[in-house]
Design a protein around this nucleic acid. Sequence first.
DNA 1: AGTTCGATCGCCT
DNA 2: GGCGATCGAACTG
Length: 204
Amino acid sequence: MTLKRSFYVRPTVEVARDLLGKIVVHGSTSGRIVETEAYLGEGDLAAHAASGLTNRNRVIFGAPGHAYVYFIYGMYDCLNLVAEPEGTAGCVLIRALEPIAGLETMRKRRPAAPRTEDLANGPGKLTRALAITLRHNGCDVTRGPILVRDGPEENFDIGVSARIGITKSPDLPLRFFIKGNPCVSRRAQRKEPIRTAALRSDSA
DNA sequence: AGTTCGATCGCCT
DNA sequence: GGCGATCGAACTG
């Protein structure tokens, strides 16, 4: 049920894609992963690991199957899962969850989100909904207190796009999401492939 | 509906 | 000292 460490000992992109549909659990709250981004090592200028080991990013270089949590904009925590063998940098940013359990608890933690699909549809929102903070940096997600479990068997279409909100390596296709899922992050909706509406507005 | 902007702080140069 | 792998409210049109 809980994903084994071997799941994470693979190329970051593979892990990012395969995490879709899996379930993140913390305490009584849990949610299904519907959007991820891969962040690589050296050569990926957008990655925190881009310029080598620092005190902040050391978990990314460590053992796979651990949580890399960072604090951003003075306000938000973001959850990543470390991939690749120990010694090689690579992690997967969890960008959005579909709430499964503990919805009332999540609502209390996120009073600004009356709709269920808005409780965890962004990297800063999902950590708040699940009460994940910098304190969890380095914790083993095969052991807890944060766990990642297999989801139910299911089929879904996977979409791919550029990553959101970065300035440095902006065009790499390293974002993965469950197509059509209403909990895919809001900022990301604008990055979806061009729709027919854009063409029709021309002739109006 | 799309864009701008303020909040707020750990980490790196 | 300044900058973010963001969010939500307040704008504009």
